[in-house]
Every structure is written in C-alpha cells, then in structure tokens.
Design a protein around this nucleic acid. Structure first.
Lengths: 187, 187
DNA sequence: TGCAATCTATCTAGTAGTAGGTCTGAATGA
DNA sequence: TCATTCAGACCTACTACTAGATAGATTGCA
C-alpha cells in the first residue's frame, strides 16, 4: 500500500471539506473514494467529529510549517508576502479553499471540539504572520503607521476572504486583491 | 399575521444559512421555527434549491440598496467606508456572517442555480464598491497609486473574510483588520 | 520451534433517525 | 364558490453509527 488508510482518509476528507464544507460530505463519499466500507472508517475515526478534529490539527501543522518556512528566510518582506500568497493561490488552483474558510462558513453546525481546533488554527496562523510583520517593522520594511498586529490580522482575513470569494466568483478577485494589499503593506 | 409565511420562511432560512451554511439546516429546522409542517414549506418553495435561490436574490437586493444608499451620500470616503464596515459589523453582532461567505464555504455542494445567484451577489456588491472608489478617486480621496478596481475587490474580500474569520475566532480580528484597511485606503 | 492467544483491519448486515419531497384532502377566507 | 394555505400520512434515499464476524499478521510462551 502506498500510504496507510488513516492518512488516505484524512487526505480525502480534507479535500471534501475544502470543496463542500463539513456538512457537505458523508462517510459514504469517503467510502467510495478510498475503497473501504463506511463501517471500516469508524475503525480509524470513531465519529465524524474525531475525523474533523484530526483533520484540522493536521492542517494546522501543515500551514504552520509552510508559513514558518517562508518567514524564516532572509528574503525581503515583499518576497515573503508573495510566497505566502502563493501558498493560498496553489490551494485555489487545486480547486479548493482553506480549511478554516470552509469550516467557518457554517461554524454553528460544528461540534464544539472542532470549533476549538478551528480557532486554534486561525490564532496560530495569525501568530506566525505577526512575527513576520514584527521583524519587517524592525527592518524598516513596513509602511509607516502600520502596526504589525493589525497587519497580521488584515492579511489573514484578506487571504482567507479572497480565496473563498474567488472560488465562488473568479480568480481575478484573488490575485488583484492580494497584489493591492501587498502594495499597500510595503513602503 | 404579522408578516406572510413566505417572508417568515425566508427570514428563518437566511438566519440558518448565515449561521450553519446551506447543508447545515433542514426543512425540519424551518418547520420548528415557523410553526408549519415541513410539507407546507414545499407549497411556498417547491425545493430547497428554490428557497436558496429566492433567499440569495432577496439578500442581493437588500445589500445593493444598503450599499448604494451609503455611497450616494455626500460624506467623505473615510466616513462611507466606516458605514459600509458598520453594515458588516451589525451582521457580526447579530451572530451571523454574510450570506455569500456562508454559501461560498461549501460552494461545490450548491445547486448550479444557487452558485449562479451567489456569483451575481458578489459581482453586484463589488460593482457598487467600484463606483464608490471611482468617485473617490475623482475627488482625490483615494491614496495615490491605488486603482479603484483592485480597491473594490480588496475591500469586498476583506469585509467578507474578516467577518467570517471573526465569527470563528473573535471580533477583534474584524475591527482591527477593517480599521487598518481604511487607514491604508485613504491618503 | 510450535501453537495458542491476541491484534489489525476489514467485511456484511443491520440500527434508529433524518433528509428532501409527494399526495390527498381539509380548513379558511374573499 | 373557489383559490389559497396548510396538515397528515407517507415515501425513498441517505445519515452517522453499531454488532458480530473473519482472514491474516503478530506475539507470548511451553
């Protein structure tokens, strides 16, 4: 077997969440995709909630690693912002939106544990961006008058929003928004 | 009867969409809230798709009117942007997110007609913002180097994104993001 | 080493409950 | 009188989830 079943389940579930949302996919969908019965899925993840929690945790690790790698490079701020944008653009090109955007769209119908993990995912990503902008400010790469905290939050929301909106409208809305924001962020 | 059943159904469905998403509510939920049987709902809206299409159309009218009213006033750009932001902030305070954000979170599981209406909603709102920024540019109220089109898209995505993210995290992420964007937009 | 015990990962077949939707007919009110 | 509005009973398909069993691999130990 190429990869273990648990991983393949998480991969498939993540793709489904990123295209249809939490309520938009069923164990039957997973069963059809992976090739094991719906009952067998419960062997690996007792409930759908457990599956979602594992999925968000894993996605948080993935995003954390990816963003940290970008911000730890010696590149100038503008280049780093373009790399982060590229991370989200590749999600668009894969026909998906960010896990946090997909789940936040119907936040009230999520199990409590999943909501908690979702908030942790958001806070973690914003924290990474905050470090990026703090360093940039010290290096004089941040436009005067901008504080790093607002900047981190603004960037996260815009990345999130433009990716989600673009999937429902067209890609131009993503690229144009992010290019404009980048121009406003750097002096 | 205070208002007719069709309107009450749309009101309830809209609230449910704005908190749980399209797949997150059922005819049973509506039945419980309105006080008529699920079968009777089908009298007013033959299918869930019809209900969703009507809901998005009505929301588009609502948003169009609200935004147009703001941008047609003689106030300076900064004040207008604050008013538009207030429109979204009141949605947050009602415990909801924007209909477009809620639907876009699971766009692949939407019926085709609903997807079409969703795109129309987005495009219409961006078009209104575009008129706002074009006028502002002519009046010299737009920061130099900013083009109205990018600006309209950026604002829509950020409003959308920060409202959705704030509902899953906390309100501060909304207020801070929008304040920062407003400061960057006006010279 | 041989063999029994146990574990892993899966199956078939089912549960109760809910989904959206249909049909028939009874009130209601202009 | 007659269209509007709704309810009751129903349907089929699907939901997450469970029970019980099985084939094969791994382990413990005499």
């Amino acid at each position: 077997m190429a990869t273990d079943t648990k991983t393949r389940l998480l991969d498939a579930a993540q793709r489904l969440v990123q295209t249809r949302g939490f309520e938009g996919f069923s164990f039957h969908d997973l069963s059809a995709e992976i090739g094991i019965s719906t009952a067998s899925i419960h062997y690996h993840f007792p409930t759908k909630r457990d599956l979602a929690v594992a999925l968000v945790k894993r996605y948080r690790d993935f995003l954390h690693t990816a963003v940290e790698q970008v911000i730890s490079s010696p590149a100038p701020l503008a280049a780093k912002l373009q790399q982060v944008t590229g991370l989200y653009e590749s999600t668009y090109d894969a026909g998906r939106i960010c896990v946090s955007g997909a789940l936040a769209g119907g936040v009230e119908s999520l199990p409590t544990e999943v909501k908690k993990e979702l908030k942790a995912l958001i806070d973690d990503c914003v924290a990474s961006l905050l470090r990026l902008f703090k360093r940039a400010q010290r290096a004089g790469e941040l436009r005067a008058g901008l504080d790093p905290e607002s900047c981190a939050r603004l960037w996260y929301c815009t990345l999130q929003g433009s990716l989600t909106v673009a999937r429902a409208s067209d890609k131009k809305i993503f690229t144009q928004s992010l290019r404009a924001l980048a121009a406003l962020t750097c002096p």
